[in-house]
Design a protein around this nucleic acid. Structure first.
Lengths: 331, 331
DNA sequence: CTGTTAGCGCGTTCAC
DNA sequence: GTGAACGCGCTAACAG
């Protein structure tokens, strides 16, 4: 930067101001500086700038998996909301492991992000205390935690699944099966399972037809195995409710292979409203949870919290996001 | 850090050494320091550390879309390869826009990454010169560029598609259709289209049955529209070759809705070997391109280049990655 | 509008 | 095995 200054005949300070753009610089000076910058191929060193200014320009976000379009949509929402700012997204993924989340939080905190967005409300104690000690705003998403760390932008997975099952029961289904993963690792899955039981409980229907199929990430393939197992153990099941559309799709295809017609022989429902749910034949009845909106809203909340946003409306600590049933042909 | 030192009765310097772990510290001292760190919830400030040491600990990677499992697998490969190092991934996505790539490269270069991984070989001139000026190792992936910037880990999209089409022609198909996107934006798609024409040219078969369906990201839905258009314009088409499995799947489902049986009435082939290609019914014949391996190899090449890896074998500037046809029932 | 001074929080280097 | 001085490249604050 000093070199650039020399070449343009000004001090490093003036170069800094010209590059930031928000200070007043004489037009000719500015032009000379820009030319020097071009000629030297100079790019600002933000690590040094952050140290000096105390602002790193980072927002950290942690999602369970990068390879799941529900969560990557949330990441897209965050990115878009940050587009007009000079903030940069530091993205990490946990592969659904809470211990990896803790590591990730620590390594991100080392970069001194100005805010952090998490997925879910389940964290290790150490993670919680590091976040608290950091003093930066935190947004938990995709959940309605009982004891939030700071802000929340999400929905109750239990309520959402409850709504879906209630809708199906209202349509006349009585013999429900549930296909999910090992609950220990997939906290959102566990909550959905709870919603399944809760809804059926209200209808005085049994909710013991449950298949647990491996640890997250849950794959389409597991859906195929699970539906076979479900139908083998309880052949008269009327509807299989899956913890995600990916599982539902795998189940659907397995049925197709076995010559079992959906929804005539068995109905199938999913969760998440992935692209595939709308495209496959029959389309999958599911819950849409506005993944993109969760990310965009979480990012905007963070921006208000760090005073980078005109704070149109006072950001609530808890922002519930919308979800709704999408009726298609599979159930 | 000074505070931690005070609490433990040592200088900040000793704290720094204790936290890095590679220096020799008396065990009792070390324990006192660690206790103080815990008590204060202290987390190292890496921006300051980088400035001082000249190492930021960042590796930058840019992919077209986070919401495409081929590319997110590559990102996973990179992450895994970095797992045993103290390097952190700075991930960005361009939404398939070369101008966004340029912006992204600039904002990443500001963070002074120690290496950078790009997708594809098409970049703006300014992007190229910034990368060159930065002096850091660059790896281009998912392509075989004619004039590489530095290292390359990838394959020829043209050759891969050529192989697929040749395989299909060998099986007896003669009337080929092609479904892709607007070539201007999707460079890899354009190369695949070229491979399609090249292979058919060798067989003296016509390659004019081509549908272009919108700009990337190409969705499953577009596959449905495209196959309808293809069959309307050229009803006797025997096989529809799609630029990606997502398109192929959309086409497959549209056929299913129209009561058109695959592969009896029309065969369909894809590209990328996405999870869905193996699960759907019928399974999609496609090209597997080892997405994960591309990422892992690219990251390892970078590690050697920056001397963070024992450089087992001299990293070649050009590392071709493997691809192969996966035969399933759709074609 | 532009320059000067000081210091961000660490790691490097050298001394003890 | 530990401490002190110094500087990384930049920007905040204050002059002029």
């Amino acid at each position: 930067m000093v070199d650039v200054g020399k070449r343009a005949g000004v001090s490093a300070m003036t170069v800094s101001r010209a590059l930031k753009g928000n200070a007043s610089i004489a037009e000719p000076t500015r032009r000379r500086i820009m030319e020097a910058v071009e000629a030297l191929g100079y790019v600002l060193d933000q690590s040094a700038g952050s140290l000096s200014s105390g602002k790193t320009g980072f927002i950290a976000a942690i999602i369970p998996s990068i390879n799941n379009s529900n969560f990557s949509e949330t990441a897209r929402g965050i990115t878009e909301a940050l587009a007009d700012t000079d903030l940069q997204l530091l993205l990490g993924y946990t592969e659904y492991r809470i211990d990896r989340e803790e590591q990730l939080i620590e390594s991100m905190l080392r970069r001194r992000p100005e805010g952090i967005i998490l997925t879910g409300g389940a964290h290790t104690d150490r993670a919680r205390s590091m976040l608290l000690a950091s003093g930066i705003p935190v947004v938990e998403t995709w959940d309605m935690p009982e004891s939030p760390i700071d802000q929340v932008v999400g929905f109750s997975n239990t309520d959402a699944m409850d709504l879906l099952v209630t809708t199906l029961a209202d349509k006349g289904y009585r013999k429900f099966g549930f296909i999910g993963g090992e609950t220990s690792l997939d906290t959102r899955g566990a909550q959905r399972r709870l919603g399944f039981a809760k809804a059926l409980g209200r209808f005085d229907l049994p909710f013991d037809r449950q298949i647990a199929t491996g640890v997250p990430p849950i794959t389409m393939k597991q859906g195929g195995h699970a539906i076979s197992e479900l139908l083998q153990r309880w052949p008269d099941t009327e509807v299989a409710v899956c913890v995600s559309d990916l599982l539902a799709f795998g189940a659907l295809m397995e049925c197709s292979r076995q010559g079992c017609v959906v929804p005539r022989d068995i109905a199938i429902a999913g969760f998440g409203d992935y692209e595939i749910a709308a495209i496959c034949d029959p389309g999958i009845t599911t819950i849409n949870v506005d993944c993109y909106g969760i990310g965009a809203t979480a990012a905007r909340s963070l921006l208000s919290a760090i005073g980078r946003q005109p704070t149109e409306d006072r950001p609530n600590r808890i922002t519930p996001t919308h979800f709704h049933v999408v009726q298609r042909d599979s159930a």
